[in-house]
């Protein structure tokens, strides 16, 4: 039997509830986005439909990586994007991954030259995808104190490229860079993309989860009240296996989910995330021996949602792009439409 709600309840509690809910319901303008990190841009009709139904209209597409070529002693673009099909429904935003090592080798002239080359190549690739200059360009680099000056100069120089003058420039920000902007500096760009993953020590065989660990994340997030440039959110969905031989990290199997190892005769289950080799043989091109281990680190739907909810409390910039990493069919198989939707919704 229900007790009737007393009048006193409405008098005393409704205003409080209204005040709370008006704050909680404040709609955040979220631009739902995905990363595309494969070298061939060829989304299937189903994938495009799925993105569309999720309200995703922005695709951050990696155009190429820039590495340091030891033999030639110069920077080199690799894994250049091959485009098979360009989905009309999506705005394409170029992303370039630049290794920190490349910056270590360059002087200021080399940096300026690299900036020009990167822009030119990006321009060439983008022209094949769209007649308009990109609305947003993102540069991904885990810079250090030693390479900061070079990196920031590169970003400044890239922004002078004529065809990209109207473009919004974005740079990825790792958690340690977010937490300690005084030490690491703040990249001279319009926006940052806070990579809310890869926060632990991947090489530690005893670490629990190097992709996302709520307490580690919280420790970083609490360091900073306000980051000097507007931030967008990068959320990981992937799963990988870290392969250790004599407790030393040898290789990352990517993507890798525990269910594959459950069916693999070479390995036995130690616990939910750890597998040990029981014999000798090849696994995904790697020769394993008894005693070798694989640690699965998986951004399950629950963990993906948890990370989104945690980060949502700290990012308040409007509009806010939320970019999920990434449009790999193998990864997306592990998420339902509703689970992906809930990750975006956590910010809304």
């Amino acid at each position: 039997m229900h007790r009737p709600v007393s009048r006193a309840f409405f008098v005393l509690f409704i205003p409080i509830f209204w005040a709370w809910s008006s704050c909680a319901d404040k709609q955040q303008e979220v631009i739902r986005s995905f990363y595309h990190w494969q070298t061939t841009l060829d989304l299937s009709t189903e994938e495009i439909q799925e993105l569309s139904s999720l309200g995703v209209h922005d695709l951050y597409v990696k155009y190429f990586d820039v590495i340091w070529d030891e033999e030639a002693a110069q920077p080199r673009p690799v894994a250049k994007l091959q485009t098979v099909q360009v989905p009309d429904e999506l705005s394409i935003h170029p992303v370039i991954f630049l290794t920190n090592e490349t910056l270590e080798h360059l002087d200021m002239d080399g940096v300026n030259d690299l900036a020009w080359r990167m822009c030119k190549l990006m321009d060439q690739i983008h022209t094949g995808l769209s007649k308009d200059p990109p609305a947003i360009i993102q540069i991904d680099c885990d810079w250090t104190e030693g390479t900061r000056d070079n990196y920031f100069q590169l970003l400044k120089q890239m922004q002078t490229y004529k065809r990209f003058e109207e473009t919004i420039w974005s740079a990825t920000i790792r958690l340690h860079q977010y937490a300690y902007p005084q030490q690491t500096g703040v990249p001279p760009v319009d926006r940052g993309l806070l990579m809310f993953y890869n926060m632990g020590n991947i090489e530690d065989p005893d670490a629990a989860h190097s992709i996302y660990d709520p307490s580690t994340a919280e420790a970083y997030l609490k360091q900073t009240d306000h980051y000097p440039i507007p931030l967008d959110a990068g959320i990981a969905l992937f799963s990988w296996g870290l392969y250790f031989h004599h407790r030393e990290l040898q290789q990352i199997f990517y993507p890798l989910y525990a269910d594959e190892l459950l069916n693999e005769s070479l390995f036995t289950t130690v616990d939910d995330t750890h597998f040990a080799a029981t014999g000798e043989g090849y696994f995904r091109g790697r020769f394993v021996q008894p005693g070798d281990t694989i640690r699965i680190e998986s951004m399950s739907p629950e963990l993906g949602l948890k990370s989104a909810e945690q980060l949502s409390h700290y990012l308040h910039d409007h509009p806010l792009s939320v970019i999920l990493y990434h449009t790999d069919p193998v990864i997306l198989q592990h998420y339902t439409h509703e689970e992906l939707d809930s990750v975006f919704s956590a910010f809304e």
Partner: peptide, 9 residues
Amino acid sequence: WTRSFPLLS
């Protein structure tokens, strides 16, 4: 200043 491992491209 703990560095996270970079996500390799």
